[in-house]
Design a protein around this nucleic acid. Sequence first.
RNA 1: GGCCCCUUAGCCAAGCGGUAAGGCAGUGGAUUGCAAAUCCGCCAUCCCCGGUUCGAAUCCGGGAGGGGCCUCCA
Length: 535
Amino acid sequence: MEHTLRVYNTLTRQKEPFQTLIPSKVSMYVCGPTVYKPSHIGHMVGPVIFDTVKRYLTYLGYEVTWVVNITDVDDKLIVRARELNTTVKDLAERMTVDYLECLKRLNVTGIDHMPRATDHIAGMLEIMRGLIAKDYAYAAGGDVYFDVLKDADYGKLCNRDPEQMAGGARIEVSDKKRNPGDFALWKGSKPGEPAWDSPWGPGRPGWHIECSAMSMNLLGTTLDIHGGGLDLQFPHHENELAQSESFSGEPFARTWMHNGLLKMGAAKMAGSVGNVVNIADLLQRHQAETVRFLLLNTHYRSPIEYSDDRLVEVRKALDGFYRFFERFERITKKSFYTLDAPTVRRPFQAGAPSAAFVTEFVALWEKFLAHMDDDFNTGGAIGVLYELLSALNRCADTCQLESGKAAAEDLHAFERGVSFLKELSQLLGVFDKPRAEAKPASGELTITAHAPAVITGPPDARKLIAGVKQILDDVGGTLPPEVYSLDALIRLLINLRAESRKAKNFALGDQIRKRLGELGVTLEDRPGGTIWRKE
RNA sequence: GGCCCCUUAGCCAAGCGGUAAGGCAGUGGAUUGCAAAUCCGCCAUCCCCGGUUCGAAUCCGGGAGGGGCCUCCA
């Protein structure tokens, strides 16, 4: 494969050329949620980033298998289910649905398997038996613990020394453990708690063992990529790594990738801090695409600055793209959202002689990909996307593509550039469908000869139509009996305005524009005619 | 106390030894009857102090702030 993708590996603390165990195949495991509460935005950082990682790897020609687990048994679930007076199973089921819905909204489409921990108890027991047989683990009073001192390289992921961990007074106290740093593989259950049979009595899995069992079962003993939030690095990933390698004798993951955490002001967002923003609530106020863009705007290893103002800022920046897509449609009569663009990376020569704009587009396309090759630098790549947008608008301006007298050659160059924009947008998982709110308000005004006018449709649409009709009544006289859509009504006003402008009656024309503006409708006078936009 | 990491314009942010991407805000101009949209221009020497180097935001040492992990956490 002719590319130079480099990825930062937490294990070695440096960027390395990306190489897979099996040529052209990638196995990727990312730690998913414990489903005991509705998801907050922090839960979406990893999925969005690794979804983009998968998109890019696929684009490079890899066949990627991506697994995200669902932890559906855990102390928190037990406590929460009790609070809600329901079962662990029911709670897990409902929170899983919530999580899946969030993934869908944020366009996280690449996950191949989402195993539930409770479906893999047998695999966990097998690992525990193996670890005990090899003397890496021991049973004690119904529990099973991993002995960190038996594992020679324990702590290598996070640079921890198990000998010194005794000093930390915050490690869970238990007289069953041999060493303070030992962690539970299996927890004997108390009456009333979910339990599975095991050679050591009824119990449930410890926190880390599930990921070892599920990843090995679905992806084999050695993963190409293991991902997760920075906060999982220790103890979760360290322990996962220790038990997996001790069990299999093989390297557990070739590359460890950790994403930065979302922060609000100074502190990270987390359940334990109590400053979480629920996604369902958030998506009432902001487009899912804006959220996805915000998450990708910062390099994945850095903390992401989150706030409502930031989201508004990103949205304003995105508006430039949405307007451009409309412009593209006016010029070519094609929808950007359904364009076909290459899904696999290949060399591209502009060819000579070539339009200057094509040369520029190709250069930006390459610049974007160079950023992605550098440890999935989506922030840098997005910067290039804005540059490409400017270049495309400049092309449309310079070549007068909206005037109707565009040269075929210029049009071709333009479409070439738009195709690049489409190709790159796909890598980020954005701009693949119109914004939900961009759909024109549906509603109708029916005028009949001898009855009052009737307006139908949802409240928003009715209000808007009534407002537009009022303007018409004020400036346009009577309407012939007919059924009018919102667009038809605004068109009538636009025509009225055009006539008055032609007659140099700017006062009336400006009044129409001003009053439409008060309804949130903006008019733009373009070479091909006036267009309107609801904002 | 131990282990990591960060500090770039008003805000967000890229940058990984060769002379500061991009976005938001601001501002000047082109365009427009006026707007809107679009385009072009302007807007930072990179927390501080030393050092290495022909050359450092980028490497090393020290200092000052800030964050994460060591307990559940994406």
